[in-house]
Design a protein around this nucleic acid. Structure first.
Lengths: 157, 157
DNA sequence: TTGCTTGCAAATGATTTGCACTGCT
DNA sequence: AGCAGTGCAAATCATTTGCAAGCAA
């Protein structure tokens, strides 16, 4: 493990391929991949779960609140990250599905924390088929589905 | 149809059985079923789709903003209504599933409007089974799942 | 230099709350 | 009387924005 490089820059918890991909996504919208934005991607990519803004700021002291919000907005519009409406007091942010893969969330109704989970392809397909069917009936153009489980996390139970 | 009473009080768009059920739910929490709360249930029950607070207020001029928010909170805590976090600027409210039945939402990313849809029991069961499985692995106690489709509604497409 | 980016401080706006009053029970 | 419920106005607080200064092409 120690000698086994994982293609990460020192100080970055996200691999080089991901950073390259992010740079390309930003480039498509004529946005620069600045230090502040790279820090956000490092924090979100290193967390392994969605983070609220306070958590993001706590993870990297160098980030300022307003710029973090502004850059999260840029990253969201460029398709790099996703903003989760959990119903709690904060929005949560995570790398988008093109970077992280399709998945779902366990949302704690007590503390608001969010955990990523994946489901069987078989179930995913059944859900997608069923949703496309009802969407067609309502002349609704589907973009993506969100499937979350609300309940009490291990820590709050 | 004209002579075919549907067990609704004049001026109420919600049937008597629902109002009785709501009264019982509130009673369990020692809350009264006041005129203002009844008006909210009438508005939400009559809409047939989730409504934002401005829509609720527009539907009944007699409702005051702060009391509406306060009563929606009471109704939510009593299990009468559900608050939806759509990601848009407003929260949306609808009668809870015990009153309305289990269903899902088509959420328009442009205008924020929400439409109710139902899925095959077969799909519902597959989803629930899959979610319970991953929840168990994470020692997470499930309360309910939410499955929403985000996209462009017929009006915004 | 031109214009994207940044950080600070101030503004915004949905939602919540203090308070005095009304009305059940 | 006692206390839940109401409406107004004011407060809250996550998030957004104005502006002056920094930095890359």
């Amino acid at each position: 493990m120690a000698g086994m490089a994982e293609a990460k820059k020192p100080g970055s918890r996200v691999d080089v391929a991901t950073h390259r991909e992010v740079a390309a996504m930003l480039g498509r919208f004529e946005h620069r991949y600045t230090a502040g934005r790279r820090r956000l991607v490092d924090v979100l990519g290193g967390a392994g779960r969605p983070l609220s803004l306070p958590e993001v700021l706590a993870a990297d002291e160098q980030l300022s609140q307003s710029s973090a919000y502004r850059n999260l907005d840029v990253l969201e519009r460029s398709g790099v990250i996703r903003r989760l409406a959990t119903g709690g007091e904060y929005a949560y942010f995570e790398l988008s599905e093109p970077l992280l893969g399709h998945h779902h969330h366990l949302i704690c109704v007590d503390c608001g924390s969010v955990t990523d989970v994946e489901l069987d392809d078989h179930v995913e397909r059944a859900v997608d088929d069923a949703l496309h069917e009802v969407a067609a009936k309502a002349r609704f153009q589907p973009l993506r589905h969100s499937l979350d489980l609300h309940g009490h996390c291990a820590a709050c139970a």
